[in-house]
């Protein structure tokens, strides 16, 4: 039981990091990034290949690019960087003056194609079998702490990073940068007239969100030691988004609640406590059907989520530095 709880704690922290990152892009900036999972996958893969050691050595059963064995915190940084770079590349192609629904479709196309390419090209990340035997950080501690103790240690470490992510998200959330981003979302022409450059802001939020997503991917693969295309199908983005929309777009605690309900309470706990029905894999397929239904119900009944986005009030803003301006208030 303790084993399951620590596992779920790690998953929850990883999912939260990812959800807050996607919420920056989808909630604050209004970008329908249906390819979000690519940035998490990029982080996970890069973490794996710089931690696994050279390809063809001890792990001759799998092929991959690069191949290094960097000491522990470095693979996480590589993962974050990879997520940021992939997000930036995606953003440079798709963040065009395009209708929002077209943009969403293009993101989806990228997610599907990337999965196809990585599955097919065995030389890249070992194809559809994926990478396995990724070393866990400080795995020697497993002998001293025992597996259970090590799991809780990892969960604690993930939680610390998750809290760091939260403070970053909260810090950005109160900034003028975030208000400019939201302004550009709600009224692009108006924001432009006030001297905001929406294109630059959106690329920035893509990069930051991508780094957080890559970090979450690295943390996840460091824990489960394996990563394959089955772990990042396009529908995973959809599950994160369902949590965000259920909890409340652009509301950090809403995202927290929604992610817990969808990713943990629904996906993990049902898999754990409900008896296996039918043939293997049936309940997984049904979970996705229910997520689709849940998504429709949320859009229909509570489009603004359980905890709606808070409106910015003038009184909550920082007092202006120029006295004439504050007098005008």
């Amino acid at each position: 039981m303790s084993f399951y709880l620590s596992t779920i704690a790690v998953y929850f922290c990883v999912d939260l990091l990812a959800a807050w990152a996607l919420n920056m892009q989808f909630g604050w900036a209004g970008i329908p990034n249906f390819a979000f999972i690519l940035t998490q996958a990029a982080g996970a893969y890069m973490y794996a290949v710089v931690a696994l050691g050279p390809s063809g050595g001890l792990t001759a059963f799998q092929h991959y690019i690069l191949g290094a064995s960097l000491p522990f915190p470095l693979p996480l940084l590589v993962a974050a960087g990879a997520g940021g770079v992939v997000a930036l590349a995606l953003g440079l192609i798709t963040l065009r003056p395009l209708r929002r629904d077209y943009q969403a479709a293009v993101f989806l196309l990228f997610a599907v194609i990337a999965s196809d390419v990585v599955s097919a090209d065995v030389g890249l990340f070992n194809g559809s079998n994926g990478l396995a035997a990724v070393p866990q950080p400080f795995s020697s501690l497993q002998t001293t702490l025992g597996l259970g103790g090590y799991q809780w240690l990892y969960a604690g470490f993930t939680a610390v990073i998750c809290l760091g992510g939260l403070s970053l998200v909260r810090g950005l959330g109160g900034s003028g940068w975030q208000r400019a981003l939201r302004a550009a979302r709600d009224d692009e022409a108006g924001a432009r007239a006030l001297g905001v450059n929406p294109a630059v802001l959106r690329l920035q939020v893509f990069f930051i969100g991508g780094m957080l997503a890559g970090l979450s991917g690295g943390l996840l693969v460091g824990f489960i030691s394996a990563w394959s295309p089955g772990a990042w199908e396009y529908s995973e983005t959809f599950a994160i988004l369902t949590g965000i929309i259920l909890g409340g777009v652009s509301n950090n605690w809403g995202v927290f609640v929604g992610t817990f309900l969808v990713q943990i309470a629904f996906q993990e706990l049902t898999a754990l406590f409900l008896p296996q029905i039918g043939y293997p894999g049936l309940s997984d397929a049904l979970v996705w059907v229910v997520i689709g239904v849940l998504w429709l119900l949320v859009i229909y009944f509570r489009p603004r989520g359980i905890l709606p986005e808070r409106r910015t009030r003038m009184s909550t803003l920082q007092p202006s530095t120029s006295p004439e301006m504050s007098d005008a208030d």
Binding site: F34, R100, D101, A285, V289, G292, W295, L296
Partner: peptide, 29 residues
């Protein structure tokens, strides 16, 4: 419900997800 193009796109995506995984379940994967 006065949903715009983007909201309806998300509805079609959900409908697609439901069809895909229902078929998957019926076809025994």
């Amino acid at each position: 419900r006065q949903n715009g193009a983007f909201e309806l796109l998300m509805v079609t995506l959900a409908a697609g997800l439901i069809i895909e995984y229902t078929l998957d379940a019926l076809a025994h994967l």
